[in-house]
């Protein structure tokens, strides 16, 4: 009976979605009808590379990065705050679990030895991704998640592995404070929070786009340490200090 109700509700939601997806009577835009040349995103492209401007607004080759870390960087600050609150919640909820987690299997020889090779490669790839966040796909969040996944593999492959949670907390706090300090420097030099006060350089260079790569490296370090912190809380089951 309950499953039939669930199916009926799902069908109702499906009917609502599909009837609005191609509803030609409404004055909203139809799905697949967008033209990027006319949308607001074209302005971001133009402002990033317009040769007639004295200096480009961001100078970042990756437009998604220029939106996330320059135009909407205050929103990104809120985003990493949400991640921090989530890590804090995991740490607080995990505080009631004092027992150490043990797996029901022993990590095999191949997993154990393969990790010694793969962990370094995964870590370096993560760092590469967030350093090149303004040039290539990726950025601070995927790079940080890759660093976290390297630590997850370390936890899985070695039962005795324990990351130093205190070290991650220091790294996380330092990165977060530096983001705020950079924002305040922008406030004092440019007049608004997180102002891009550094020179923008040439589009496509590694050192270009002003504060965008600096902020993204800090975001990557903060996200990586937070994800590792969450994993550490899951596997050790207790909070330090």
């Amino acid at each position: 009976m309950k499953k039939i109700m669930a199916i009926l509700l799902t069908v109702a939601v499906a009917f609502f979605v599909f009837s609005n997806l191609y509803n030609t009577d409404s004055d909203k835009m139809l799905f697949g009808d967008n033209n990027p040349e006319e949308a607001v995103s074209q302005q971001y492209v133009n402002k990033s590379v317009d040769p007639e401007r004295a200096r480009p607004e961001t100078g970042s080759a990756n437009i998604v990065t220029s939106v996330v870390v320059n135009y909407r960087s205050f929103d990104t600050l809120g985003e990493i705050t949400v991640l921090f609150v989530s890590a804090l919640g995991v740490a607080l909820l995990g505080g009631v679990l004092r027992k150490k987690v043990t797996f029901q299997y022993k990590p095999g020889f191949i997993l154990n030895q393969g990790m010694t090779i793969i962990a370094g490669i995964v870590l370096i790839t993560g760092i590469y991704i967030f350093v090149h966040g303004h040039l290539s796909p990726g950025g601070g969040f995927p790079g940080g998640a890759m660093i976290g996944s390297a630590f997850l593999l370390m936890y899985l492959s070695d039962e005795t592995f324990r990351a130093k949670i205190t070290g991650f907390k220091i790294l996380e706090g330092t990165a977060g404070s530096l983001i705020l300090i950079i924002g305040l420097v922008g406030l004092s030099t440019g007049g608004y929070f997180l102002y891009n006060f550094l020179p923008n350089g040439t589009v496509g260079d590694l050192i270009s786009a002003g504060i965008v790569p600096v902020l993204y490296v800090l975001v990557g370090l903060k996200v990586g340490s937070e994800v590792s912190n969450i994993l550490g809380n899951f596997f050790s089951g207790e909070v330090e200090q």
């Binding site: 949308a39 995103s41 080759a61 437009i63 998604v64 040039l135 589009v203 496509g204």
Partner: peptide
């Protein structure tokens, strides 16, 4: 949406991705 100088335009919308 990654700019290559001299070949601008023809990108997908970057805003939904952000």
């Amino acid at each position: 949406p990654i700019i290559v100088l001299g070949n601008e335009g023809g990108y997908v919308d970057p805003l939904p991705q952000a």
